[in-house]
Design a protein around this nucleic acid. Sequence first.
DNA 1: GTCGAGCATAAGGTGAGCTTAATCTCGAAC
DNA 2: GTTCGAGATTAAGCTCACCTTATGCTCGAC
Lengths: 289, 289
Amino acid sequence: MLDPRKLHLLRELARRGTIAAVAEAVTFTPSAVSQQLSALEREAGVRLLERTGRTVALTPAGHLLVEHAQAVLEQLERASAALAAVRGGPSGPLRIGAFPTAARVLLPPALATLTGAHPGLEPMVSEIDPADVSAALRAGELDVALVHEYDFVPPVTDASTETEPLFTEPMYLTDRPSVAAARADAWIMNKPGTLCHTMAIRACQAAGFEPLVRHHIDDFDTVLAFAAAGQGVALVPRLAAVNPPRAVRLTRLPLSRRTLAAFRRGNGEHPAIRAAIAAFHTALPHLPL
Amino acid sequence: MLDPRKLHLLRELARRGTIAAVAEAVTFTPSAVSQQLSALEREAGVRLLERTGRTVALTPAGHLLVEHAQAVLEQLERASAALAAVRGGPSGPLRIGAFPTAARVLLPPALATLTGAHPGLEPMVSEIDPADVSAALRAGELDVALVHEYDFVPPVTDASTETEPLFTEPMYLTDRPSVAAARADAWIMNKPGTLCHTMAIRACQAAGFEPLVRHHIDDFDTVLAFAAAGQGVALVPRLAAVNPPRAVRLTRLPLSRRTLAAFRRGNGEHPAIRAAIAAFHTALPHLPL
DNA sequence: GTCGAGCATAAGGTGAGCTTAATCTCGAAC
DNA sequence: GTTCGAGATTAAGCTCACCTTATGCTCGAC
């Protein structure tokens, strides 16, 4: 019988590309991962990996098996979720990931509702950029996460995660009437690698220019303070712009950001996940949207 | 992560009812099965079994998990079948089960076609009554089996097996124009526990009487010889009645028997299974139907 | 009451799977 | 060309999961 643990490693390899990265993700040594994948190949009776230069790549058979692995792991997730539901109401640790703005604005009221309704639940929150959420969910470091996606950024589709939409908010630009009007300005953006950074770059490119990025700042309060001090222009979402400094003028753009709850595919009926998403929804009316 | 091996044991327990029977089916000791199921309960965090008198029964949670186990094992089966397909054409050992008549009439030409088309295939045939096929498939003792079902016998539905119909044949009665006309006769039937025996009893009951069973004989040639010797009446399928003894008159009844190929759910795309079923089909025109 | 079937627990041996350490290869920097 | 580091594999050893044997317990049949 195929071993789901090995299938999990193969799936991680498909996503991460190197055995070393897989090993780090599951906190094994690369040696262990290599041995497990060799064993899987032996059982499969087909070459699944092939060395390409300094790293390994999946053969077509490997990719085929990854798809089946996904289906198997999803069913196992479903089974676990069903057991959790049978055990009773939501309880135990629940690892929640959230992008910084959500952690500041949405989570405090949501967690209050959540722990109020389910005293046995122990939510544990980590700030995390949406770009890293899929990997963290797969690795079991998170159970549910708040992520966002932008018009300009194709949603990161990962076969192993599923999402439920929560709300949509508009984007604002500081001190300029449109992105195109900020062609010559210095820009304040989030750190490279974050979804917000990618979005801002794409928005400028869509307006026909490459932005001149001067500052890399993740915290939107700081971003606005910089803008107020005349250090550049920035794109900020509604939630981050509730109390802007006096000196900053905000223009609403025809650009929106969607916030969603993400979780491992198959785990959507887990009572703790359901309770968390319900709590997120109860917190929405309290948001300054 | 839930262990499919343990889930398999739980599923077997649901079908067989006792830990001892499961142990025998998987050739473990009862102790090992007991330990594995205890471990599964611990991981599940719910009672799955409860002692009822001298044996154990599944709790509602246990039954729920069995359904999920079925889905998981099916996906694993699918993955294995996909790997077998990727490995290339059908090859290796293929365990075939067949009821006696099929083994005598259908298998010889079918196996000739099969091994002719796929020299790497090593078919291994075991005679087996259709009533025992599901268990043998689940246990991995068989990969594909020829089974039959009768009008009077509800098909044995097992969530873990799947079937494809092959052909239908009529039933014949010896020396009497109808089952009802054989009310007072001595009957020659198959051994109790076989599907044919159950069918014959039901057919008599449907005609309004309990048959007087005198002989229990599985081989239809012998059955017909007994009938020819005036030792009783019998129901025989078309395939078993191609060259009846002179002294026996056969009457075709409005009663039919369907022959099907059975295999583990999820394994239907396994190349060896597909090749076997294809070979069964090529052999059908050679049958004296 | 006695006996056997069925299950659970204790104790022990074996193998799967992890770690560490060493080796090999590739690619980039100089 | 040489060096170096990243990535992968292999060897050797250790731990733990898991199966077996042995034993005991409980229930139901006779």
